[in-house]
Design a protein around this nucleic acid. Structure first.
Lengths: 352, 352
DNA sequence: AGTTTCTGCACCATCGATTGTGCAAGCGAA
DNA sequence: TTCGCTTGCACAATCGATGGTGCAGAAACT
């Protein structure tokens, strides 16, 4: 009766066992049986057998037939970062609550990899794709479009699909202002004491850098040329940028605008091995929020992007009618030093 | 010629275009054509057409036929944590390099959700499943086993499949010792000044707590009863535990063993709003490594679990022959305060 | 009784790729 | 010329589920 390594039961097995046809079994199991006028008692019999034999639908077969899979994809640049991992966490919650299956993959900020990853996901007939922080969103679009795959950009905008992004300009403006105001009037910050580290040539960086420049000029009256040190999204390149700066000036600036928490890790690498006291007066503004980052032993003002709102808006758009691509800005929030905010994990219940 | 919303090309389309049979096309496209003695020129023709029409294999169909999908699953408790997200990052690298597609999902430490998630993944015919930090690994096993799905436990062990876990006892021993030794001889730590916060009734917590007790006893000569405050894997419960402690004692202990970085977030929540100076003498040992956590404004000694080694070992085992379930310990590493270590992101190239 | 309308379900093609098997044409040897 | 072997491919069943269509038998109606 109960064979050991039995293959999974199929509708055909249940069909034989119940004496009904496979199509009837199928209808019963996928819930369309009332529409197909299957007798209540027949349905119960089949459901009972399904339970008994631990039937589970082969979703690949269903996906093949329906040409949809029930999978919803999230493509991240990287996992290992609180901003993106909270994105994944939030995304999962939303997808689960819709009865679909979340699939999270990363594409390493490599345009080629991004396209390949999208291709692969498409081959599995995923239903929707959320493209987060892609280096080349429109390249991914070119892959999704012919496949008829609904997709949306998050964090970095594309021209060919709706985008939901953080209001980087306003966030960076607030942040720059907060950095500057952090210094009292007795020893105010001078324009050549505030530098931006990180960033590359993407939309977010450009906006932030523009706001940085504008705000410096507006509040400090000037903005020297060399105020921005691009160092991509790499801790190590950022480390080298700090070392080069230190080499040249013999010290770090009094105030730093750090383009992302990844770059902030670069700053830590610079600090490691150097005495903590060297940095106690430092004021850092960091785009992105990380709870531990917020408590570092110097002032760290952070900007928390509203991940929940971004994901919510993205779902709204991806389900809505297709219209001309638009970019939607979500307001981020300025976070004062030493703030431990709730995150997506707080919605999970836990036992002690 | 180039229709707009054309469906994706199939082997049947290419079959018509090339004048070959679908089976020939299939063989050419999946690389088995030499074995099937297909002429070189025929193959070239078909490959050319495939290129031209942007053919991509429908992996659901292939998966259905082969009853394997090319997907490799990673089931995490949560995404939003550096330990688990670095696990995901490392895992992705390994799976990609094997030409398969990584699928990362979280199951919220809920046994029911863990089983459901495994069921779902099985329905997609995933090839292997890596089960990380599951609350009920053996429950998941019961789901995988009948489906013939190869699986392995990581971080928390199960009895029914191989497990690769951190050497929690040794890690906690080193950590406890390091905490104690951090205090000089002129003002040594007393047994009632060192408390453990976090942990629940899982294998990792039990091992760590055991080592904590043993090491305290060995080095401090005593170990009061109330030295352990369980607070699960929740920042908020941990916060409440600290508040309760503070209520009772009017202060925090001089030294803390924090069971995981998630609990460390609970400590931050306690600190938020209270003056930083209150904690400057605090010595914290935290199981798990987080670069920002390492630089907090008090001594934070951390334990870095060797994720890379764990994943490597796990792949080795999951591909190897099936034998009696064993548990493999991977040595973790003690990390001194203010250390900024390289992580999985450092293997990615980035541009400035 | 004869006709129409429901009920309740079975039949069968289909999704796209894989793979065991069969077979004709070509070629060399006897 | 005939036998036998190789080459090069086509055929068809199959994976499991879905959904349009058709059709008996029962019920309702005239």
């Amino acid at each position: 009766m109960d064979q050991r390594v039995k293959k999974k039961a199929t509708i055909y097995d249940l069909s034989v066992l119940s004496g009904s046809s496979p199509s009837t079994v199928s209808a019963v199991l996928n819930g369309t049986w009332r529409k197909r006028r299957i007798k209540e008692s027949t349905a119960q019999t089949i459901l009972g057998l399904a339970e008994l034999h631990q039937y589970t639908t082969n979703l690949q077969a269903r996906g093949l037939r329906r040409s949809r899979s029930g999978l919803v994809g999230l493509m991240l640049p990287v996992h290992d970062n609180r901003y993106f991992s909270s994105m994944a966490q939030t995304f999962e919650g939303h997808v689960r609550s819709r009865g679909q299956c979340p699939v999270v993959v990363s594409a390493s900020r490599d345009p080629e990899e991004e396209r390949r990853t999208a291709e692969t996901l498409i081959s599995y007939s995923i239903d929707q794709l959320f493209i987060v922080g892609a280096t080349d969103p429109d390249g991914v679009h070119e892959v999704c479009e012919p496949a008829g795959l609904r997709h949306i950009n998050i964090d970095l905008p594309g021209a060919k699909a709706h985008s939901v992004i953080s209001d980087n300009y306003e966030g960076a403006r607030m942040l720059t202002e907060a950095i500057i105001r952090r210094f009292g009037n007795d020893d105010p910050l001078r324009p050549d004491e505030l530098f931006l580290f990180g960033g590359r040539n993407d939309h977010a960086s450009r906006e932030r850098i523009a706001a940085f420049h504008a705000t410096k000029k507006a509040l400090l009256g000037a903005d020297p040329e060399d105020g921005v040190q691009s160092s991509g999204y790499s801790p190590d390149i950022t480390l080298r940028a700090f070392e080069a700066f230190y080499q040249r000036h013999g010290k770090l600036p009094r105030a730093l605008f750090i383009n992302s928490s990844i770059n902030l890790e670069g700053l830590l690498r610079f600090m490691a091995g150097r005495p903590a006291e060297m940095f106690s007066e430092l004021v850092v503004g960091c785009y992105d929020y990380d709870p531990f980052g917020s408590f570092l032993p110097f002032s760290v003002i952070m900007v928390r992007q509203n991940v929940e709102a971004m994901i919510t808006k993205a779902f709204e758009l991806i389900d809505g009618p297709t219209t001309t691509p638009q970019t939607f800005l979500i307001a981020p929030e300025l976070i004062q030093p030493r703030s431990a905010l709730k995150g997506p994990l707080d919605t999970l219940k836990d036992i002690a």
